[in-house]
Nucleic acid binder design. Structure first.
Lengths: 203, 203
DNA sequence: GTCTATAGCTTGATAGAC
DNA sequence: GTCTATCAAGCTATAGAC
């Protein structure tokens, strides 16, 4: 596979992603995507069988960068996970203040494509959120919280709630409130965590 | 204003709402809406200036029925608000199991129309969620929880998180988990509520 | 208030040359 | 792998009769 092919393909995905995110999937045409990528529609259809497929590839690529981003946010602060979760939500709150922020690409796609269960974009969005939840389980366990499954689920619930409210009201206070709630829940759970008590002896 | 005019207008809004909810706003055409309502496009445009306006009127009508529904759910169970919130989330969980359920119409609209801040549908969705939050404040206060503002905000965060997760995974467990979290948070807050202690003396 | 008819444009996707 | 050219269908919205 020659390098140029990949460059064109990536350029198309980037252009498509920008339009899908800014305008919505249905409101972005293949014409606009091709134009922004600097190719013709024929080239676009050479690389992607359909618009639906293109949406799927976009979200699969976005999955990697978004999860890497949250991982960075959670690990760029010191202390226990309570404090680091609060920090992570704080960084999200900052992001939502940017006028270019328009919600979560996965939630946007899932809502816009709610009537099409088998759509590649819907499948990619589901997969992304499942990975996100599994990641929270890992992070909570790494900080000595056990069992972590239910608490991880509560974290994704708060995160998605914060994203919806921020999209509606453009008010970072909702995201901060979600972060405080997340920290409160972890704090309360820690007292019940046997693993933590063992760590306490070791420390 | 003659009765027939209102009947036609309502029939159009109903038909539009069904299509907007099932297929999405952009994927529903004025042609389909007119056909489902049993009128021609010309009649449709006689009653509504544009498709955007029609979206706004649909959500304004939906606001009333959705809030009445949640009010019913919260009041159709006995006991303190902790238990009644759990019951409310339980009813929502049942609803999300219905294959016709495709998320929240307001969240769907806000996500699909994220690039159009002044759109009538976006404004209606914002207004709806603000009313919802204010209603939670009332209900918490009526049960002796004070202050109620932050807790009410946490309730809408959990509700919106539950809706997004249920839309993605079609798994009622997320909604039940949100309900349990809501009950836990209220339970923890009640111990700090001075008003409750006073009620305790009075009871 | 409702109809038939249509303007004017854009859509996703394809044909065939090179 | 990329191009020019184009398809058939669908879109929002409007004109003018009754």
């Amino acid at each position: 596979m020659p390098a140029k092919r990949l460059a064109t393909r990536d350029r198309i995905i980037t252009a498509a992603g920008e339009l899908f995110y800014d305008e919505g999937i249905d409101r972005s045409s293949m014409e606009q995507i091709a134009s922004r990528a600097g190719v013709t529609k024929r080239t676009l259809y050479y690389h992607f069988r359909s618009k639906d497929d293109l949406v799927g590839f976009w979200l699969e690529q976005l999955d990697k960068s978004v999860r890497a981003n949250y991982r960075l946010w959670l690990h760029s602060a010191p202390g226990r996970i309570e404090a680091r979760l609060r920090h992570m939500f704080g960084r999200l709150a900052e992001l939502t203040c940017n006028p270019r922020w328009k919600g979560c690409g996965f939630a946007r796609a899932a809502n816009e494509l709610a009537g099409l269960p088998g759509h590649p974009g819907v499948i990619a969005a589901k997969t992304h959120r499942k990975r996100f939840e599994a990641w929270f389980v890992e992070e909570l366990r790494a900080d000595g919280i056990e069992p972590a499954e239910r608490l991880a689920r509560r974290m994704v619930l708060l995160l998605d709630g914060a994203i919806t409210q921020a999209l509606l009201h453009h008010d970072p206070a909702y995201v901060h409130e979600a972060g405080d709630t997340a920290a409160d829940l972890v704090h309360a759970a820690r007292r019940l965590s046997a693993t933590d008590r063992v760590d306490g002896f070791a420390a």
